[in-house]
Write a protein that binds this DNA or RNA. Structure first.
Lengths: 204, 204
DNA sequence: TGGAGAATGTTGACTGGGTCAACATACACC
DNA sequence: GGTGTATGTTGACCCAGTCAACATTCTCCA
C-alpha cells in the first residue's frame, strides 16, 4: 500500500499532492502551483487531484495546515532542548519562529495569506494556528509562575508576542527591511524588547 | 479635461482605474479585481486599461502605492494633531496604523502581499513603504532627544515597532485573533508593551 | 472464484481571465 | 484642414480551474 512502482493507482496520491505542492511553493512561490502542473510532476493527469481535494483551495489549505504543524514542531523542540531560564526559552522560541519563516518564506506566506485561501473560515487552518497560540500561552503562563514576567492576561501577552515575531517575519519576507540590517541583531532586539515590555513598566 | 460626460476617450482613465481597483478590492478582495471587470465598471473595454498599465501587476502596484500614501497621511495627521507627550504621540501612531489596516483590510493586504505582486522589486512600492519607515524613525529620534526612551539605534527601534503593529494588524485581518478579545485593549497593550520595552530594561 | 460497487485516474470540453495585435477614433498641434 | 499620437475596441489566443463521462483497479462478499 505504501510502495507502488508502476500503477494506474498512485498509492498515496493525497499525501504526495500535499508534499509536491509544498515543494513547488518553495521553488517557485504559490503562484507556480497549478493543478495541472502538480499532477504532471507526479506523473498523473490533471484531473486526478480532484479525487482527493474538491478544489485548489482545499489543497492549499492542507499545505498551510502542514506548515503550521511543522512550525509548531520547530518551536516545541526549541523550547524543550533549552534547559536555560524561562526567559531564555521564550527568546529562543521567538528566534526559531522568525527563522522558520525565513527558511520557508513562500510556505509561511501561504499559511497566513487568507487571500489565496479566501472562502469561509477553514476550521482546520484555524485549529492549526490555534495550537500555535496555545503553546505560546502555556509557555508564558509557566514563566509568569516563575515570576520572571509581569502577571497579566497570558493570552493577551501571547498575542502581543505573536504579533511582534509574525510582523518581523512578514516584513523580512516581503523585503521591507533594509538588507544591510543584521537580521540576527534585529531578531534579538525584537524579542528582547517584547520581553522587557512584558516584564512590567518602569515607573514614569 | 476633468469632466467628460460622453466620450470615446475617458478623460483620466489612469486615475479612474486606480480608484476603481481600490474600490473593488475593498468590496470583494483583490481576487475580485479583473482587468475585464474593472474596464466594464468604468464603461470601457477590456483592452483599455492596457493603454495605461502594461499588465495587471502594474495596476495593483499603483493601488498599493496609493495605499501607502494614504496610510502615511493618516499617521502623519494623527501625529500632528496630538499636542501631548511624545510617548503619547507614538502610541497614537500605533493605534492609527492598526485602525487603518482594520478599516481597509484587503487594501492593506495588497500593500504588503508581494505574493500578488511577484516580479522584481517594484521600486515605487519600496519607496512608498520606505517613506513610512522614515517617518517613524524621525518620530522615534525626536522622542529619544526628549529622553523619554532609551537611546539606541532609532532605525532598529523603528523596525521593532513597525513589526509589532504590522504583525498585530495582519493577525487581526487574517482572523487569527479570538473575536472575543477586545481589539482596542489589544492594540493598547501592544503599543504599551513596545514603548515599555524601548524604554530600557529594568535591571535583572 | 467471480463479480459488483467503490475508489481512483483519464480525457474532452467549457469557462473565465490575462494579454497581444490589428483596427478605429479622437485629440493636439501645426 | 491634415497628420501623427494617444486612447479605445475587438478578435483571437492561451493558460488554468473544473466538471462530466468514461476507464481501470481495488475490495470484499456470496
Amino acid at each position: 500500500m505504501a510502495e507502488r512502482v508502476h500503477a494506474y493507482h498512485h498509492g498515496d496520491l493525497r499525501t504526495a499532492l500535499v508534499e509536491e505542492a509544498a515543494a513547488m511553493i518553495s521553488e517557485g512561490g504559490a503562484a507556480s502551483v497549478t493543478m495541472r502542473a502538480i499532477g504532471s510532476r507526479l506523473g498523473v493527469s490533471r484531473g486526478a487531484p480532484y479525487r482527493h481535494f474538491p478544489d485548489k483551495t482545499a489543497l492549499l489549505v492542507a499545505v498551510a495546515v502542514a506548515g503550521f504543524k511543522r512550525l509548531n514542531r520547530c518551536l516545541g523542540s526549541g523550547d524543550a532542548e533549552a534547559s536555560s531560564s524561562s526567559v531564555e526559552r521564550l527568546r529562543r522560541m521567538g528566534e526559531q519562529y522568525v527563522r522558520f519563516a525565513l527558511e520557508h518564506p513562500a510556505h509561511y506566506r501561504l499559511m497566513y495569506g487568507k487571500e489565496a485561501l479566501e472562502r469561509q473560515d477553514q476550521p482546520e487552518l484555524r485549529k492549526a494556528a490555534g495550537a500555535l497560540l496555545e503553546n505560546l500561552v502555556d509557555v508564558i503562563r509557566v514563566h509568569q509562575q516563575s515570576s520572571e514576567i509581569e502577571t497579566a492576561d497570558p493570552r493577551a501577552q501571547a498575542y502581543v508576542a505573536w504579533s511582534a515575531v509574525h510582523g518581523l517575519a512578514s516584513l523580512l519576507i516581503e523585503r521591507q527591511i533594509d538588507p544591510n540590517v543584521d537580521v540576527d541583531d534585529l531578531i534579538r532586539q525584537t524579542t528582547q524588547t517584547i520581553l522587557d515590555g512584558m516584564r512590567g513598566r518602569s515607573p514614569d
